[in-house]
Design a protein around this nucleic acid. Structure first.
Lengths: 208, 208
DNA sequence: TCCTTAGGTGTACAGCATACGCCTATGATG
DNA sequence: CATCATAGGCGTATGCTGTACACCTAAGGA
């Protein structure tokens, strides 16, 4: 066949990710990616149907950085904690793509491998059937929600400071909570919340 | 002073929300909102600095639909469940705006009242100090994550069907889990996951 | 009645995704 | 070695987008 492809999927997605890491998600455009690769804008459309598909490739690339091998031993909740932290690390390293993960979460094989590992750990812990489905979704919901909150405004950031400065008469509990929240690091926050979710999953009727 | 404003903030945000509900988030543009109001495009800029501020008004409007009064009695976890369901109902009724809530969550006073109510219930349940901060953030993380997952692809939808059709040799647990997941409705999913989170928060050392 | 001021508008511009048609490099074939 | 079919790559054009700017005008106070 004539004219072999000069670009691999990884190179294309990598260029897009480089643009995002440098100029933020708002800086991502077909033109910017083409310039990053030294090609014309329209050349990209030989590799990708539209911008949306390119975004999907970027999400895939980041998912591929997540080690999908389940930790060999340890308590089930600690093993899931490790899996969750891996995902958080991968997306935390490219925080600007977080909004993309929502629209493109489905298609990535990396997310499937991750889910398979977590579902396997849940099964070993005795969580199976419909309860496993709800548990897996709950875990994903917490993780993506927590990553977004963390990226949007860390607990020890200005949002918390603004809440702490609210009138204490109208928002007594929020002000008091924000006062303590300023001393909580992102790691402690993520692990603390996830630990609660895992406790709750384990405390369901008929589990370990 | 001359020439009184012909538009209220609510009317403006309401028009934008109407556009979103009709044409989706992609259909939201300054031109579309102006047409909805029968004004010129640039007239909108007398009321908002830019599109981003308009989006913030829309989020505020939806938050305002959430009843912030804490349920007067009942177990603490059921009361928080009610608060969470109110938020889910409001945003579920305008599912397309969910992505906007991420970028604009901070500024809304509605979210502050909601948080104050939930923090109050937590305090009554004996969850205070740093633990309350982590608990509140974990609840918000779960809720926004779950709303997004539900809107993106319901558990009983085609995404689950696709997973159920994967090779069982490579994804045994995912296939098995997806098989059960097809029979789980969105309500059961949301309540089941939230119940787990609440169990976990209550099971923390030194709580009720 | 007039003036001041803010609301409303039309035009213009840069940047966006992308449809279309063209040119060309290249592996396979004669 | 010459030729050709084919897919990669590119330039142009179109219809969107947000919004800066200059302008007109409606209306309350003097």
């Amino acid at each position: 066949m004539p004219r072999p492809r000069s670009l691999s999927t990884e190179k294309l997605a990598g260029a897009a990710l480089a643009v995002i890491d440098r100029d933020g998600l708002a800086g991502l455009s077909m033109r910017a990616v083409a310039k990053e690769l030294g090609m014309s804008t329209m050349a990209l459309y030989r590799y990708v149907r539209d911008r949306e598909e390119l975004e999907g490739l970027v999400v895939d690339l980041v998912y591929a950085e997540v080690d999908p091998a389940p930790p060999p031993d340890g308590p089930w909740d600690e093993r899931i904690m490790i899996m969750a932290l891996r995902m958080r690390d991968a997306f935390g390293a490219h925080a600007a793509i977080v909004p993309l993960t929502l629209t493109h979460r489905h298609a990535s094989t990396g997310s499937l491998y991750w889910g398979e590992a977590v579902a396997g750990i849940l099964a070993e812990a005795g969580v199976t059937g419909p309860r496993a489905a709800i548990a897996l979704r709950a875990l994903i919901a917490y993780i993506i929600g927590a990553i977004q909150l963390e990226h949007l405004g860390p607990l020890a950031g200005e949002g918390t400071a603004a809440i702490a400065a609210l009138p204490a008469g109208e928002f007594p509990h929020m002000v008091e909570t924000a006062r303590h929240a300023r001393r909580i690091g992102p790691d402690e926050e993520f692990r603390g919340g996830l630990a609660a979710v895992l406790r709750g999953l384990g405390a369901a009727p008929g589990s370990p």
